[in-house]
Computed example of a mutant assay.
Amino acid sequence: MQITETTRLWTMPQLKALGGLHPNPAGIKAVVTRILPLVEVLIERARLQRPLTFSIHGR
Score class of each variant (00 low, 15 high):
residue 52 L to T: 04
residue 38 L to H: 15
residue 50 R to Y: 09
residue 59 R to F: 08
residue 25 P to L: 00
residue 30 A to K: 01
residue 37 P to Y: 06
residue 2 Q to A: 05
residue 33 T to K: 12
residue 4 T to M: 08
residue 11 T to M: 15
residue 17 A to E: 08
residue 17 A to T: 06
residue 33 T to N: 12
residue 41 V to H: 04
residue 19 G to S: 12
residue 15 L to E: 00
residue 31 V to D: 01
residue 39 V to F: 12
residue 35 I to T: 10
residue 36 L to D: 11
residue 48 L to V: 07
residue 43 I to D: 09
residue 39 V to W: 14
residue 6 T to L: 11
residue 27 G to E: 03
residue 25 P to K: 03
residue 21 L to I: 13
residue 52 L to V: 03
residue 6 T to Q: 14
residue 46 A to I: 01
residue 37 P to Q: 07
residue 50 R to A: 00
residue 53 T to W: 01
residue 22 H to G: 02
residue 17 A to P: 00
residue 52 L to Q: 09
residue 10 W to N: 07
residue 59 R to P: 01
residue 38 L to A: 15
residue 44 E to K: 02
residue 24 N to Q: 01
residue 27 G to L: 08
residue 33 T to H: 01
residue 22 H to S: 06
residue 44 E to P: 09
residue 54 F to D: 00
residue 2 Q to P: 00
residue 57 H to Q: 10
residue 7 T to P: 04
residue 28 I to Y: 15
residue 17 A to I: 03
residue 3 I to C: 09
residue 38 L to E: 15
residue 46 A to P: 06
residue 52 L to A: 04
residue 17 A to F: 08
residue 17 A to W: 08
residue 14 Q to L: 00
residue 50 R to S: 02
residue 28 I to M: 14
residue 47 R to S: 07
residue 18 L to E: 13
residue 32 V to W: 01
residue 54 F to N: 10
residue 7 T to D: 14
residue 11 T to G: 14
residue 57 H to G: 06
residue 37 P to G: 02
residue 37 P to I: 03
residue 19 G to W: 05
residue 11 T to D: 15
residue 40 E to P: 05
residue 14 Q to A: 11
residue 52 L to C: 02
residue 16 K to P: 10
residue 7 T to M: 04
residue 52 L to S: 01
residue 56 I to Q: 15
residue 26 A to M: 01
residue 13 P to C: 10
residue 56 I to Y: 14
residue 21 L to E: 15
residue 18 L to M: 09
residue 1 M to N: 14
residue 42 L to G: 03
residue 43 I to Y: 11
residue 53 T to S: 13
residue 58 G to Q: 01
residue 34 R to T: 08
residue 55 S to F: 04
residue 1 M to I: 05
residue 45 R to G: 02
residue 47 R to F: 01
residue 35 I to P: 01
residue 9 L to E: 01
residue 52 L to E: 02
residue 52 L to I: 04
residue 2 Q to M: 11
residue 23 P to G: 08
residue 33 T to G: 08
residue 14 Q to C: 00
residue 56 I to W: 14
residue 56 I to C: 13
residue 50 R to K: 06
residue 18 L to F: 08
residue 56 I to L: 15
residue 27 G to S: 01
residue 8 R to E: 14
residue 21 L to F: 13
residue 17 A to Q: 05
residue 13 P to Q: 13
residue 22 H to Y: 10
residue 47 R to N: 10
residue 43 I to H: 06
residue 27 G to K: 02
residue 13 P to K: 11
residue 57 H to F: 11
residue 8 R to Y: 12
residue 19 G to R: 11
residue 32 V to H: 00
residue 31 V to I: 13
residue 28 I to N: 15
residue 7 T to Q: 08
residue 15 L to M: 04
residue 51 P to F: 08
residue 41 V to L: 11
residue 39 V to M: 15
residue 47 R to P: 07
residue 48 L to P: 06
residue 56 I to G: 12
residue 58 G to P: 00
residue 17 A to C: 05
